[in-house]
């Protein structure tokens, strides 16, 4: 398949898989925001999700595939680029590239690590902060579990840190998506950049609000 080896084809695959993950980031934030409505809202939402059964698993498998393709080509792309630009300049002045655009592979790797941790914590529920007896007693009480974990300063900080990383990845990634698919031009590119900045900042604020508010004592029962 040509698309798998063609440089533009690979970028298209990265863009499409990135878009699906971006959709997930949006939907996940909306779902999580039910925590602001109250314990029963979040728990009802979680229960509804789990009641979907096989659909949930199909969705998880799909997201995993998206992540797999995105990571595979992200790594290949980066390795090839390092090889294509071996000699660094003694003086290196950047005119347009920035921290966010130059660290995509590293913010990506950190996101991957965070994802593993996050799934171990709240999906598989095996991290030390999760008390097995409490979960066993009331497996549907997602609210209590989340609040219990975010009471730990270190855990909340990890989550806020991860959201800063997500912000950096998407600040470059969202506008990059439009460019990779060939949708931008001189008029729209600045707008896509603005959309990327606004969306990624919204994710940062929205997601970070949950651990921060729990940590400072709001959002407790």
């Amino acid at each position: 398949m040509e698309i798998l080896t063609n440089t533009v084809g690979r970028k298209v695959l990265m863009a499409v898989t990135g878009l699906f993950m971006l959709f997930f980031v949006i939907v996940h934030l909306l779902g999580n925001s039910t925590i602001f409505v109250g314990p029963s809202a979040l728990n009802t939402y979680a229960e509804k999700l789990h009641s979907l059964g096989p659909l949930v698993w199909a969705f998880r498998a799909f997201m995993l595939a998206m992540l797999g393709v995105h990571v595979l080509f992200g790594v290949l792309l980066t390795l090839e680029n390092w090889a294509a630009n071996p000699g660094k300049y003694a003086v290196n002045r950047k005119l347009k590239a920035n921290f966010s655009s130059e660290t995509m592979i590293w913010t990506g790797a950190l996101l991957f690590a965070f994802l593993v941790y996050h799934l171990l914590q709240f999906t598989l529920r095996v991290t030390p902060d999760i008390i097995p007896e409490a979960v066993a007693k009331r497996p549907g009480d997602v609210y209590a579990m989340v609040v219990g974990s975010f009471r730990h300063t270190a855990i909340s900080l990890i989550y806020v840190g991860a959201m800063v990383v997500l912000f950096l990845h998407l600040k470059h990634g969202i506008q990059s998506f439009f460019q990779s698919l060939g949708w931008s031009n001189d008029r729209t590119l600045p707008r896509f950049e603005t959309i990327g900045n606004v969306l990624s900042a919204l994710f940062l604020l929205g997601y970070s609000a949950i651990p921060i508010l729990i940590l400072v004592g709001f959002l407790t029962r």
Partner: peptide, 15 residues
């Protein structure tokens, strides 16, 4: 020819 892949830095346009 051994050129790399674009990651949309836009450094090219600036230069």
């Amino acid at each position: 020819c051994g050129f790399g892949n674009c990651t949309n830095h836009y450094e090219c346009q600036a230069a």
